[in-house]
């Protein structure tokens, strides 16, 4: 089994936030993946999706589902992250007041992604963008 899905994400458009995560959840349910594993995968994907909307101009999500794992790559064009280690710290955030009004931007997203993935890789170039890779065994 090798399934691939791509989604476009528009920076700042909160009305579409979660569309990719929701579609992936439906696919994983159909594949009879355990509910706890699905929850970890979609929570981390949702956090990453929100991050593109909150911080970047635009991005693309590529989800690859195989027999034993789900690998997701989220690549955005945006300001990038200056200090990834600092961004991983709980409570550290550069989110705008608008993002905070939506119930996010508390500086918990990256650590929650780390908690809910089996492997998390973040690479970023300031002024260019950020690429986040999430991997979970299923």
């Amino acid at each position: 089994m090798n399934l691939e899905y791509t989604f476009k994400v528009e920076g700042g458009n909160f009305s579409k936030a979660g569309v990719a995560s929701s579609d992936v959840k439906k696919v994983l349910k159909k594949l009879n993946v355990g509910p706890k594993t699905i929850r970890r995968i979609v929570v981390s994907l949702y956090e990453a999706e929100i991050n593109i909307i909150a911080h970047a101009y635009r991005g693309e999500i590529l989800v690859k589902i195989s027999e034993n794992k789900v690998e997701t790559t989220l690549k955005d064009s945006g300001p990038g992250i200056e200090d990834i280690n600092k961004a991983m710290e709980e409570g550290y955030s550069t989110a705008s007041p608008e993002v905070r009004e939506m119930g996010f931007g508390a500086g918990m997203g990256l650590s929650n992604m780390n908690k809910n993935t089996d492997k998390l890789e973040i690479t970023s170039e300031v002024g260019v963008g950020t690429t986040v890779k999430l991997m979970n065994w299923i």
């Binding site: 009305s15 939506m102 119930g103 996010f104 508390a106 500086g107």
Partner: peptide, 24 residues
Amino acid sequence: DLMSDVLRLESENLLLITGLANLQ
């Protein structure tokens, strides 16, 4: 009212009480 905190929970069969009435 903070969805970032809600996403960290591990409980099932839960009632979310919130004043944040938006799609998120």
